[in-house]
Simulated scan of single mutants.
Amino acid sequence: MSSPALSPRPDQIAELTRGLDLPLAAIHEVYLQIITEGVVQAFQDIRASAPSPVTTGDEAEVTALLVARLNRMIEEDKVWRQLVTGVVRGAESLSYDGAHLEKRPDLSILLSGRALRFPLIAEAKIIDATRSENLYCSQGLLRFLNGQYGWGSREAFMIAYVRDRTTIAGRLQPYLAQPDQAASYAVQTAPTALAAVGCDAARSSHSRSFLYSHTNPPANDPGVIALWHLWVDASPSTGTTMASVPLP
């Protein structure tokens, strides 16, 4: 027996967006840099305190450790506490038209002084010999382009737990440079390396394939989304940093 077709829920979206102009104003790059550095530091901390689950556990196990550490940082780090009020794993959220009521992005980062209805979203994936950049894009990145995740914001994060020591320059950049993939993922700006954030990191921008249902043209266009890619080293060996590994 087939499941019923999903239908938009305009009342849900109207209530969620009431009083807001979407997409929300862009988050200042200085704040995104602080968030990036905080996520990287938290990952390094759990890597040191729980190396086995970080290097061999599934995605949910690693993300649960990361979220716990990020929330602990709110208690311990004055700068982090001023910017972040909480981090939630798998928080239920709506798709852009309300057809889906229970989307569950991996991390929802609640920022101070910003609408809590639209947290900064991060999606996490493992990258290794069997889980590739194809899965990273098709089951991660794409969700930001079709209105499943982060549809009220202008930016989001993709986090890769990298276990085979490959890099953004060696895997993600060539993949998204292929004409068919560039079209499929609506690449506006190819991944460009970010310096001094503590991990292999880049930023790309992408068009989005949906229109807001709660407002009229031209205000119904969500515009381009900027994705910050953080590829952290979750490989079993710690002898060499990812940045120093020769590109394939």
Rank of each mutant, 00 (worst) to 15 (best):
Q12S: 11
E15A: 15
T17D: 09
T17S: 14
T17V: 14
R18A: 15
D21G: 13
L22H: 09
L22N: 06
L22I: 11
A25H: 04
I27Q: 04
Y31S: 10
I34D: 10
E37Q: 15
G38W: 09
V39K: 03
V40D: 03
Q41A: 15
Q41F: 13
Q41R: 15
A42P: 03
A42K: 08
A42I: 02
F43T: 02
D45Q: 12
D45M: 09
R47D: 06
A48W: 00
S49E: 11
A50P: 01
A50G: 00
P51V: 01
S52Y: 09
P53A: 07
V54C: 11
T56K: 06
T56A: 10
T56L: 07
T56M: 02
G57F: 06
G57C: 03
G57K: 08
E59F: 02
E59Y: 08
E61A: 15
T63L: 12
V67T: 05
V67H: 00
A68I: 02
A68T: 07
R69I: 01
L70G: 05
N71K: 05
R72K: 14
I74C: 12
E75R: 09
E75I: 00
E76R: 14
D77K: 03
W80K: 03
W80A: 03
Q82K: 12
Q82H: 12
L83E: 07
T85L: 12
G86P: 03
G86V: 07
V87G: 10
V88Q: 00
V88M: 00
G90K: 08
A91R: 15
A91W: 02
A91G: 13
L94H: 13
Y96Q: 12
Y96A: 14
D97F: 08
D97L: 07
G98A: 09
G98Q: 05
A99I: 00
H100C: 09
E102K: 15
K103M: 10
P105K: 03
L107I: 08
L107K: 07
